[in-house]
Simulated assay, not measured.
Amino acid sequence: MTNTGRGDTDRQGLSYYPWWLDNLADDVTLEGAAMNGTARGQEAVRTIVVTARGLYEFQDFAYAGDFGDNGFLEIYESSIQGEPVKVVVTVTRNAAGQAQNLAVLHRPRNSLLLFSRLMHEKFAGTPLAGHFLSESPEQRARA
């Protein structure tokens, strides 16, 4: 187990880079509470993760380390446009030690919805946009 600590550098997310991002299986999958469907393949998954990390104002890790025989877990807090968000990332490794399946949970719900809308904006005009919300509940109610 590895606890990343809580120094200023860690809080800003400057000292942490997920090992698994450069060790994705060819057929890796990514699912998340903020997503519709499942993203598949190295390029799609890497693009989504890198874009998501860019939305976080910081990453204050409570834990990043192995769990079980083939698992890796990240638990951290952040904010997105000033809104607090807690994130849990689970990574399952395949027999070759590559990241095979990723699952991401964002909470609370309002932050999850904000995250999903911002991701949709980032991917507008691309196939990845379909994995995220296109409008807020307020926008849908006005339509």
Rank of each mutant, 00 (worst) to 15 (best):
50 V>F: 00
43 E>Y: 02
1 M>W: 05
6 R>N: 12
110 N>V: 15
53 R>A: 10
127 P>A: 09
75 I>V: 15
31 E>A: 11
122 K>S: 15
73 L>S: 07
9 T>P: 00
105 L>T: 14
25 A>P: 06
105 L>R: 06
111 S>I: 05
18 P>W: 05
67 F>H: 12
36 N>W: 08
103 A>L: 10
50 V>T: 14
99 A>T: 12
19 W>Y: 11
81 Q>T: 03
141 A>I: 08
71 G>I: 10
104 V>H: 03
3 N>S: 09
38 T>E: 11
29 T>V: 12
106 H>R: 04
80 I>V: 15
55 L>C: 04
85 V>C: 03
9 T>Y: 06
81 Q>R: 15
106 H>T: 09
96 A>Y: 06
113 L>T: 12
113 L>K: 05
54 G>S: 05
67 F>W: 14
113 L>W: 05
133 L>M: 13
132 F>R: 03
115 F>C: 06
8 D>E: 14
54 G>R: 08
71 G>Q: 03
93 R>M: 11
95 A>M: 08
6 R>D: 07
22 D>R: 06
15 S>E: 11
121 E>S: 11
133 L>R: 12
5 G>V: 04
23 N>T: 11
74 E>F: 09
24 L>R: 04
142 R>P: 00
93 R>G: 00
9 T>D: 13
119 M>Y: 09
43 E>I: 05
111 S>A: 15
139 Q>C: 00
66 D>L: 04
72 F>Q: 09
137 P>I: 14
27 D>M: 02
84 P>L: 09
111 S>D: 04
44 A>R: 07
84 P>E: 10
60 D>T: 00
15 S>V: 05
72 F>Y: 15
7 G>C: 14
8 D>N: 08
119 M>A: 09
8 D>G: 04
53 R>H: 13
77 E>Y: 12
139 Q>H: 07
106 H>Y: 15
141 A>G: 01
22 D>F: 01
120 H>R: 08
75 I>R: 13
